[in-house]
Design a protein around this nucleic acid. Structure first.
Lengths: 132, 132
DNA sequence: CTTTGTGCAAATTCTTTGCACCAAA
DNA sequence: TTTGGTGCAAAGAATTTGCACAAAG
């Protein structure tokens, strides 16, 4: 395990879950999916681990809605889309690299960028259109 | 008051506050700043009004950190920057329009986009550098 | 030993809800 | 008189904190 993070069974389990499930899970989802296999796991520990990973920039926190945080082990530059109806979050690839986008920013030290789109996904979009 | 929102004293006060304070205030900040002048105001009402405004797309909710929502009466296309140290949020103008940025997105109906940058503002950046 | 990962329960924070009251059309 | 804006208190949900124990080097 890189990023200056000491491995432990729980940490490895959380990282493996995130790498194997690029579905932007919430803390709760991660906990509930790992708990059956790791009955000693507590939700506090999941919170601790996710916070540590994020601080070390090993994963990215996605706060696309105000509700709860989601996590992504894909830290490459990409955007996210959330459906207003079903709430699902999916990746969107960008055509341009981000640094070109922002006007000269005084003396800001920018080290992170998140792009969030909202609307209706293909499934919910159908219903959305048919309801009008 | 446009956007299909019926005006009321409280609604006008919240909208005027937002238009006069483009500092991306939180619900709490708005409430605390209006309360002295409007002692009958309750925080529930501020929540109600902000939710209504956002639904009507009269203002934009900014969820740049997971903590709490911030609001912006400037609904033109622009990005936001938050300082990791002091937490302040400021606007950033974009060079490109957003639709060019995203790869062809299947059948997504995209109606909203938020771009968030993080790092250190000019003030905190100084301290950040001098501390290393 | 000493550090640090973990877990429980309680506390905190932000936001929503239920319901009653009040004001305006 | 009916609709809809408001306010209080309580509930709810997500996350953090304090502290004690356990595990690892």
């Amino acid at each position: 395990m890189q990023f200056g993070i000491k491995p432990s069974l729980h940490r490895l389990a959380v990282m493996e879950y995130l790498m194997g499930n690029l579905t932007h899970p919430t803390t709760d989802t991660i906990y509930n999916n790992l708990f059956p296999a790791i009955p000693t796991l507590s939700k506090t520990t999941v919170y601790n681990i996710l916070k540590l990973f994020e601080e070390k920039r090993a994963i990215a926190a996605i706060v696309i809605d105000g509700k709860n945080a989601r996590y992504d082990s894909d830290i490459s530059q990409h955007a996210h889309f959330q459906c207003r109806k079903c709430g699902s979050v999916r990746d969107l690839r960008l055509k341009e690299t981000l640094p070109v986008m922002v006007e000269n920013s005084d003396n800001l030290v920018i080290d992170d960028c998140h792009i969030y789109f909202r609307g209706y996904c293909s499934e919910c979009g159908k219903n959305y259109i048919s309801m009008n």
